[in-house]
Design a protein around this nucleic acid. Structure first.
Lengths: 341, 341
DNA sequence: TTGTAGGCGTTATCAC
DNA sequence: GTGATAACGCCTACAA
């Protein structure tokens, strides 16, 4: 029942505590035989180190704090779970808090985490990254922070982000190549860096293929299915439906598709769709939803690695990792009228 | 930068460390004025307690371990996130591991967690609860364990479970009342307690309404969409389709629906569906999927509460909490041919 | 009511 | 090579 400590091992062998500690930590200044004897008896006695004591002694909590905007979506919940996984297999623990897209709550959470002596922070900031100045201050004080996902490539801090522009370009170009003539983009919140980047990729593809202004539109939405539905309602009301949509995420796409179906439209015959940040749902709906898959595990693992590097190697070097995804074409964006095979 | 400690506060006020400790912990044996003075200066100096030192001194890690069978599904990822949330707002942390439905891995994880000195465990065991004897042993040693979700109501330990029988009964009865004549159940793995309970509720409803054996069937499946699809393939091949399915979960239902649609069947006109353990998807697919909603936050919160009670009050009383859900009827199980309004 | 001293389990800095 | 000993920050008898 009671945990055996190095003291117990020391007593049993009539050696000092320090020798046991040395043996256990593979320190050089100890005789081979004593080390092996100590290791063996420690093993036999069922000794396991007490992490808390270690942490106190090392003045490290081995706890990482993470703040994400929300935890309802498949994306962030998977990222967080992956982060847990990565950190715990590296001897760290994770405390997650979510800011509910609210900058004040985000700041409060970050402060709580710092108060709880986390060794570092991983942050996916809310729309607009409102707490920038606080973070810059902390970074200046050499507090380890890594940003994730919701931050632009120019942001002056270590970060891991997704190449939104590139993949939004590909997604849009795919629609163009499918011969869709009028393409609308349901964009998410204007203030979000990811929105800006995806809009940029969208426009870049249109420009490349010389699509005139009358043939595309960017419509600001939220990030949930309801907001996809609302956008469609408006467009139907205004008799302004395109023949293809590129959506900021799968939820918005699915909401939009649902509303169109309810109104008697067919997907992709009447209106085609491509989503983003692929969810499990993409393959289960009819028609299957084309989407851009983002690597959740990779995102978490990279952010974790960057942070642990900062913590352990005491680097101040700012590193930016840009992740790639994959474009998964499914039936929702295949033009039956197109000649392309 | 450097954290201020009780020592610093004590030095500043020329009082002893113990007085500061007493004041901070609202102990009785201290003069009001000194307490207030101490509290005020501590506040002013920006003192925050070092949890690690506290934990070491109290011989408690304030860490809870959780082992769940998987983390890919919406259900368990939400439960785990809710657990995190509940525990951290009660001063505890959570380490989650998943067993991938593998009993050996489950045991290994549990042992790892115990070695890391968690104060207690929350376990959703794999199919068949293969590590029962190990857990019973631990419980006998007064190690705090609470079970969750994957365990039968007779299991001799504190637990929080869902009333599968009851809600499977309701789901089935709903199909019967919709005048569906032939009803099949895609059941999940036979060995799972939840499967058994849901099968029991299914049969109970059939019995109550005197449905003869020829008009129902129980088909063992897995828990994923693929397995729902496979089941349907077999049934189509054997020309053995019922007019309604009750499925062990939404994923199986969605897979099955997809396969049926691909083969030209209409839902619910040709075949009706009701799922279980409702997911976000239920409202987004066409037709919307009827399902039984299970409370994820409540499940986590209750399990957390039970465990903290055991840890803090040193109760040995075995408590079982049975949670209820709600039956959400949507279009996938509304019989257009039925006369019921 | 307050202070002293020892302990929680480790690590690390000294001597020897 | 090895063993005392202090320190990490906090709690708690016990003594004053």
């Amino acid at each position: 029942m009671k945990h055996v400590t190095i003291k117990d091992v020391a007593k049993k062998l009539n050696v000092s505590i320090s020798s046991v500690s040395r043996a256990l930590n593979n320190k050089p200044d100890i005789k081979k035989e004593t080390r092996e004897l100590i290791l063996k008896t420690a093993e036999d006695m069922g000794y396991t180190p007490n992490p808390i004591a270690k942490h106190l002694s090392e003045r490290k909590s081995y706890i990482i704090g993470a703040v994400v905007p929300e935890l309802m979506s498949e994306y962030f919940s998977q990222v967080v779970i992956a982060l847990q996984d990565f950190l715990s297999s590296n001897g760290y623990q994770l405390i997650v808090m979510h800011s509910d897209e609210n900058p004040e709550l985000e700041l409060k959470n970050v402060k709580t985490l710092i108060r709880n002596m986390v060794d570092g922070l991983i942050i996916a900031p809310v729309v607009g990254n409102m707490n920038k100045s606080f973070y810059l201050e902390k970074q200046k004080q050499d507090f380890p922070i890594v940003f994730m996902s919701r931050v632009s490539s120019s942001y002056p801090a270590s970060k891991v982000i997704f190449n939104n522009t590139k993949w939004s370009f590909f997604a849009t170009e795919h629609l163009i190549r499918q011969n869709y003539k009028k393409i609308y983009h349901l964009s998410g919140y204007k203030g979000m860096s990811v929105t800006k980047e995806r809009v940029y990729g969208f426009e870049k593809a249109l420009k490349k293929h010389k699509i005139p202004k009358e043939r595309y539109k960017i419509i600001e939405t939220g990030l949930n299915a309801e907001e996809g539905m609302e956008a469609i309602e408006d467009l139907i009301f205004n008799h302004d439906l395109p023949d293809a949509f590129f959506c900021v995420n799968d939820m918005v796409a699915l909401g939009a598709i649902k509303k169109l179906k309810e109104n008697g439209y067919k997907v992709p015959e009447d209106v085609a769709f491509i989503g983003f940040t692929e969810t499990l749902m993409a393959e289960l709906v009819t028609p299957q939803l084309s989407s851009v898959k983002q690597p959740t595990y990779k995102m978490a693992e990279t952010a974790g690695k960057l942070l642990l590097e900062i913590i352990n190697d005491n680097t101040t070097e700012v590193k930016t990792v840009v992740l790639n995804g994959e474009l998964n074409i499914r039936n929702s964006s295949i033009n039956p009228k197109s000649n392309i095979l």
